[in-house]
């Protein structure tokens, strides 16, 4: 049942083309994209879907506060520097 909506399509504002729901529910390293409610609330009961298939801590991770672009960039730079051999 988790895959029931997988073939439904919508336009992805992040990527700039049409995608199926299957992508949206896996976008964040296997978990749903944080825009999943924004993009799907009109098409089916996405709130119910999320409640049904995801734990509270997963929801908290999915919808954790997005950070400003500059902050994200600085963090990515720091992470990359730490990965340097």
């Amino acid at each position: 049942m988790m895959k029931f909506h997988d073939d439904k399509k919508t336009y992805c504002r992040k990527l700039g083309h049409h995608l199926t729901f299957e992508y949206c529910r896996r976008e964040k390293q296997g978990l749903p994209c944080k825009k999943i409610i924004d993009c799907w609330f009109e098409k089916f009961n996405i709130q119910y879907y999320l409640q049904e298939y995801y734990k509270v801590d997963e929801l908290a991770h999915i919808f954790e506060a997005p950070r400003p672009k500059m902050e994200t960039l600085v963090e990515l730079i720091r992470q990359a520097q730490q990965r340097m051999p």
Partner: peptide, 16 residues
């Protein structure tokens, strides 16, 4: 610092 789209709490369960 922490922009967040606030979600209606009821819609994701009261624990969230």
């Amino acid at each position: 610092a922490k922009m967040t789209p606030l979600l209606p709490m009821y819609s994701l369960g009261h624990d969230f």
